[in-house]
Amino acid sequence: MSQFVIIGGGVIGLMTTLQLADAGHEVTVVERGECGRESSWAGGGIVSPLYPWRYSTPVSRLASWSEGAYPELAFRLLEETGIDPEYRQKGLLYLRVDDEARALEWARAVGKPLSRVGPEEIYSREPQACPGVEEALWMPTLGSIRNPRLMQALRARLEAMPSVSIVEHCEVKGLVGDRQRVSSVETSRGNLAADQVVICGGAWSARLLELAGLQLPVRPVKGQMLLFKARPGLVNRVVLMDGRYVIPRADGRVLAGSTLEEAGFDKQTDDQARESLKASACAIIPALADYEIEHHWAGLRPGSPDGVPFIGRAPGWDNLFVNAGHYRNGLVLAPASTHLLVDLLLERSPIIDPEPYALEGRVGHTA
């Protein structure tokens, strides 16, 4: 049995912890705030990249594996905790896609059901969609999950596991050891002994890896979202148009997102973004104009140069690992990226080729 320290209590950190605990290991999660309250909470919960045909093969491989894992994970968590992550496989309507031919070619190549549909099919699925749409793309297999509920369920499951400790409101100050091996993690609440350490701190991962003398090209990218207090059945599935989307929840609430802003670690919301998001949401579903905006918030995505996450051993270290830089797709890619990392940690045969995600050649060294 090994002692793992996981730095970061978002979806990546908690899914990693669950798999390690399932495998019989002791795990301590260290979180600077509260678990699951950063980008894992702030996102929309679509279990697919927004336009999957526009992503590179490494991202697509992780996304495909993860999509198949979510139904089973959601059922497991509901059974074990009584908290429903609300996995809904209702499909997605793409309105106004300007690279439709590319999308359909991608779908054929990967065996994904994606078809062109006309007005009758569009409005039979979403009667409240904006009028006058003559053509759309329809992906029937796409699912979504209510990510705040997912995080609650993951945390509840881990709290019930005797081999797991969760330490919140705890800052990581340093890594104790020589240049090859970490022996303990220095925190604001004392040192934690570790056989292996995993950094999965989302937008803060670059700061954490600086403690190991490495420069990780991961930066915060702000995204703002709205929540409409709508009635059940107003929107039935995810609808995407011009890069913005609406996502229904089981209780009728509808999320609308999102902005993309380079604003450092600023998480303030602003009226300009609110009005822009409201306009986009009402352009997709005009009836949303009649409903109250219940909440407006912002989160910080862990942006990376090409959207391909960094998964694997930190260069120059024997027992320091990283899982970060998922950009807009942290929730999407979490089941696969955490499984891949746990395969590497436990020296199992990896689910997919780990080479495209390795840190070697993709990170620098601090002066």
Rank of each mutant, 00 (worst) to 15 (best):
S124C: 12
A283G: 14
V30R: 01
L340C: 01
K112F: 15
S183C: 14
P119C: 02
S115H: 13
E86G: 02
P127E: 03
L142S: 14
G44Q: 09
R61E: 15
R146V: 09
N323F: 01
A230V: 04
E347Q: 13
S188W: 06
H296I: 06
R146L: 14
K112R: 15
L211S: 05
A230I: 01
E171N: 12
W53R: 03
G307V: 12
Y70M: 03
R181E: 11
A203P: 08
P356T: 06
E294I: 11
S115L: 14
T259S: 09
R146T: 14
T338K: 00
G111L: 08
Y51H: 02
Q19A: 08
M225L: 15
A156V: 09
V238K: 01
Y70P: 00
P315Q: 00
M15T: 13
A279G: 14
V117H: 04
Y327W: 13
S337T: 06
R116V: 14
L150F: 01
L175G: 05
A206Y: 04
I351L: 15
E67V: 12
V176S: 14
D99I: 03
F75C: 15
V235D: 06
E186Q: 13
P140E: 00
R207K: 15
N236M: 09
D98Y: 12
R149P: 00
Y87E: 06
R37I: 04
D84P: 05
G132E: 08
I284M: 07
Y245S: 07
W317M: 10
P315V: 05
V182Y: 00
V59F: 06
S188I: 00
V97C: 10
F321G: 03
I293N: 00
D353Q: 07
N329E: 04
L18F: 09
G10D: 09
W65A: 15
Y357C: 07
R244T: 13
A206C: 01
S60D: 15
R54E: 13
G299P: 07
G118F: 11
G177T: 03
F310T: 05
A263W: 06
S258R: 10
D178A: 07
R76V: 10
L209T: 05
V239I: 12
D270M: 04
H339I: 13
P119E: 08
S304N: 05
F4G: 05
A206N: 05
E360Q: 14
A279I: 08
G190R: 11
S66Q: 00
N329P: 02
L209S: 10
C200H: 08
R231G: 12
A314R: 03
E275R: 11
K229R: 15
G82P: 10
A334K: 05
E159H: 08
A136K: 03
E34P: 11
A42L: 09
A160H: 10
A336V: 10
I199T: 01
A203W: 07
L227Y: 05
R348Y: 08
V221K: 14
R54L: 08
R116L: 02
L78H: 09
D270S: 12
L78M: 13
